[in-house]
Write a protein that binds this DNA or RNA. Structure first.
Length: 109
DNA sequence: TGATTGACCAACT
DNA sequence: CAGTTGGCCAATC
């Protein structure tokens, strides 16, 4: 019985260290052809239905833009969470995004 | 059951 | 440079 795509996404996202971020595309790429970047978004969307703690705020798009912030209550909750972890946010995007980037295919292997 | 949509991405017009 | 399109696959209508 193989894990579902969603579960694999959760497993990765949970492992993102505090103060670091990752992107939908990288996670999708790490999982190979099992899914696409959109599916990662879907997985995180469903993540509120599961008992686990998914740090979905640490996942942004490939530009470091907080595209999913509207799903965090409509305000800047997502940005605040990241700021409280030491990530600098400006105009809904992460400053110096590359230095915070956590690439699963590089870190997780 | 078929059509539409979506927290993306890259290429094309 | 902004808008559209195709691709990926599951969930929702």
């Amino acid at each position: 019985m193989e894990k579902g795509f969603f579960q694999q996404v959760y497993d990765i996202v949970i492992q993102i260290p505090r103060g670091r971020v990752s992107s939908y595309g990288l996670i999708a790429a790490y999982l190979g052809s099992k899914g696409s970047a959109r599916m990662v978004g879907w997985a995180l969307n469903s993540s509120r239905n599961i008992p686990k703690n998914i740090p979905a705020h640490r996942v942004v798009n490939r530009n470091g833009l907080l595209t999913g912030k509207k799903h965090f209550g409509g305000t800047d909750i997502m940005a605040d969470l990241l700021r409280s972890e030491g990530v600098e946010i400006e105009n809904n995007s992460i400053k110096n995004f590359r230095s915070y980037l956590w690439d699963p295919s590089d870190e997780l292997k």
